[in-house]
Design a protein around this nucleic acid. Structure first.
Length: 703
DNA sequence: ATAGGGTTAG
């Protein structure tokens, strides 16, 4: 019945132009064309149906071969219902019939059905699976993350003596890599007797998938050295790894190699090259490649836009975003989502809102990744109410969405809200993960809520079956240390079940700076530098501790060590948005076109501050800098504040973001300024938000 | 009469 319906549907479809009319209307004079020949003319799903109808009408005897070819073609064109009908009608089930069905199910999104047929092969009187069966079974297992099923299949592969088959081994490498079983994947790869390009590709793609970028690049070099010809897939797999490593030299070599080896330059290869150059900071090279592309897809535009966004070229990113649409290419949710983190980073709320508007118009705000990025963007731009609004409107939420909201509250010092949302997420059936607890504990830490923070930490293993990672230990050290409980923090590090990493010692070091403990601080710094010898932050913190306790000679010596080792401390940089443009300032900046005006305003501010009782806090500045204590006044956030007071109209909060932590002196100056100028000032530093108003700060001086 | 590997992202 179903077959009849099916065929009548075929007859009503208009003729496929690709089929010669002789097939559709066979002349009575000439003998019917044999079915096997007819099937060779199939070009797509439409012609397949028509030819199938033709075969049935011609009443030729249908050889098993023809029936199997039909199954194979239907499953190739994703017509699984028709394939299933043919499959059920053949009397003796052969391996290729099964294989064709399993191929269709596993490549067209029905992995469960593929595994069901496989178990039918195993447990009924069917033919056993063969070397053509296993690659599809492993693909289905990968789609379902079915480790035990794959292991069973792997055992059967070994028992049947199929281990040396390169197709099967490649599928095994791919499967284990996708489930992050890198060691097993490598073992399977090493046992392949006759390797080829494709199995190398699976290994390299697998390493890249697991972000083992050095391994991916090494495997690539090794493959070339052994004389294998890389394909475009090889390049597409290895280039993201090079990009993440930021290894421009290696990337250039690979670009050259693509040309030398005559690798087919597909669109995907160029997209990967653009992304690689973008991640290495070479926006101009990336743009040149992009401009030379003949066929740009939405992915190409997205890659170029995110290249600009990643490198802080927001005007170019937005321009390209508009240009893309003018070229009739529709941005995807990924395109717009890739602009948002940049808006968040620069506190470019105007651009963020524009992107939000565009997303609503196109229904992207329903995309979970997109809306989570919006929550994060609004929160990092200081708009916690808007973040909350987007969160409330989300049609669905995953763990990342909840974490973004909890983290948002923490950033804004709203611990009680963070804890409440933590309870809400569980009522919603969501299980917290490691990142949830990082947000929670650091939220408690910033609010000085030691007991609650410790409770969270204990609870994660006791109630949530999570193993605390080094980052959680570092959070607890920060929690205890910040509250002045340095001894306990130290004991906590010593009691860690695994070797502490530099971040734990770094947290203790930071706490020692706040509470001015030279001896413990020195020890923590030595430990941290032992584990991460070139981290400028650790040098700077220890120098600050020395200077703060009057040990100028030690401070000076440390500075010289830094100079000698060519360790540069990161330059402080503050940004502020006005009129849709983000203005950035660094320490002692005089590059801004209006810098003279800004400095004049700054002098005025400093004078007013001093009149109103502000006393510069020079305790954390180096000796030589104290001599000219006005240098304090040139910290980048002070320039940004002057710019804000100069440009942003009364009554509108001034929003500034800084790439490092705000220093105690600037913090005190901002408090005074908020009172004197009757202005709300919102400062986001490396860690959190400070909301200044009427002479106070939301952080309650605890940061 | 059938097979294996890939690009943008919170």
């Amino acid at each position: 019945m179903a077959a009849a319906l099916h065929l009548s549907a075929v007859n009503s479809t208009p003729p496929d132009t690709s089929i010669p009319s002789t097939i559709l209307k066979p002349s009575k004079l000439s003998p019917p064309i044999p079915p096997s020949l007819l099937l060779q003319r199939v070009t797509g799903p439409k012609s397949l149906k028509q030819i199938h109808a033709q075969i049935i009408k011609s009443r030729c005897t249908q050889a098993l071969q023809v029936q199997i070819k039909l199954i194979s073609l239907y499953s190739l064109f994703n017509q699984m219902d028709s394939a299933e009908l043919c499959f059920q009608r053949i009397p003796s089930k052969l391996q290729f019939a099964y294989n064709a069905m399993i191929r269709g199910y596993s490549t067209h999104g029905f992995p469960e059905k593929a595994l069901l047929l496989y178990s039918q092969m195993l447990y009924s009187h069917s033919p056993p699976p063969d070397k053509f069966t296993f690659p599809f079974i492993l693909k289905a297992c990968a789609a379902l993350s079915a480790l035990s099923e794959a292991r069973e299949a792997h055992g059967r592969i070994i028992k049947t003596g199929l281990t040396p088959d390169v197709h099967i081994s490649t599928a095994l490498v791919d499967f284990y890599m996708k489930l992050c079983e890198v060691g097993i994947a490598r073992q399977v790869f090493d046992n392949i007797p006759l390797k080829n390009t494709v199995c190398w590709n699976a290994l390299i793609a697998g390493y890249a998938h697991n972000e083992l970028d050095v391994e991916a690049v090494d495997a690539f070099k090794w493959m070339i050295e052994l004389g294998f010809q890389p394909s475009s897939s090889t390049m597409v797999s290895v280039l993201p790894a090079v990009g993440r490593l930021g290894d421009l030299e290696e990337g250039k070599l690979m670009h050259k190699l693509i040309i030398e080896k005559g690798i087919e330059i597909k669109e995907s290869v160029i997209n990967s090259l653009i992304a690689m150059y973008g991640k290495c900071g070479e926006t101009e090279t990336a743009r040149r490649l992009f401009d030379e592309m003949l066929e740009k897809t939405a992915v190409s535009w997205t890659v170029m836009i995110s290249t600009y966004a990643r490198n802080g070229k927001f005007a170019e990113a937005l321009e390209l975003f508009i240009c893309m649409q003018a070229h009739g290419v529709k941005p995807t949710a990924v395109t717009v989502a890739s602009i948002l983190p940049a808006c968040a980073d620069m506190m470019h709320i105007k651009l963020g809102m524009k992107v939000h508007g565009y997303s609503i118009k196109n229904g992207f705000d329903l995309d979970i990744i997109m809306s989570t990025a919006l929550v994060d963007m609004y929160a990092k731009c200081g708009c916690i109410a808007e973040a909350r609004c987007v969160f409330d409107e989300m049609p669905e939420r995953n763990i990342v969405s909840w974490n973004a909201m909890i983290n948002a509250f923490g950033l804004h010092g709203q611990v009680m809200d963070a804890l409440e949302w933590f309870a809400l997420m569980q009522l919603d059936g969501m299980k917290p993960n490691g990142s949830t607890f990082v947000s929670l504990i650091s939220a408690c830490s910033h609010a000085g809520m030691v007991a609650e923070g410790l409770e969270c930490f204990k609870s994660m293993s006791k109630d949530y079956d999570l193993v605390p990672e080094t980052k959680h230990y570092a959070c607890v050290v920060d929690l205890l240390g910040r509250a002045g409980r340095l001894k306990e923090a130290f004991e906590f590090i010593k009691a860690m079940p695994s070797e502490p990493d530099d971040s734990a010692w770094g947290a203790l070091l930071g706490a020692c700076r706040i509470h001015k403990d030279v001896e413990l601080g020195r020890m923590a710094a030595l430990k941290a530098l032992e584990l991460k010898p070139r981290e400028p932050g650790y040098y700077v913190l220890l120098t600050n501790i020395y200077a703060g306790s009057g040990r100028w000679a030690d401070a000076q010596k440390l500075r010289e060590v830094m100079k000698e080792k060519k360790i540069l401390k990161e330059a402080g940089c503050s940004s502020i948005e006005n009129g849709g443009i983000v203005h950035s300032f660094v320490v002692g900046d005089s590059k801004h076109p209006e810098w003279k005006k800004i400095y004049k305003k700054m002098e005025e501010i400093e004078e007013k501050l001093k009149e109103e009782g502000y006393v510069p806090d020079t305790s954390l500045v180096l000796h030589e800098e104290i001599e000219k204590s006005e240098r304090l006044a040139i910290h980048s956030e002070r320039i940004a504040l002057a710019f804000g007071l100069l440009k942003i109209p009364d009554g509108i909060p001034i929003k500034i973001t800084k790439n490092l932590r705000v220093c105690a002196d600037c913090h005190s100056a901002f408090k005074h300024a908020s009172r004197i100028y009757k202005r709300e000032i919102i400062l986001r530093d490396l860690r959190r938000f400070h909301r200044f108003g009427s002479g106070n700060c939301s952080c309650k001086d605890c940061w």
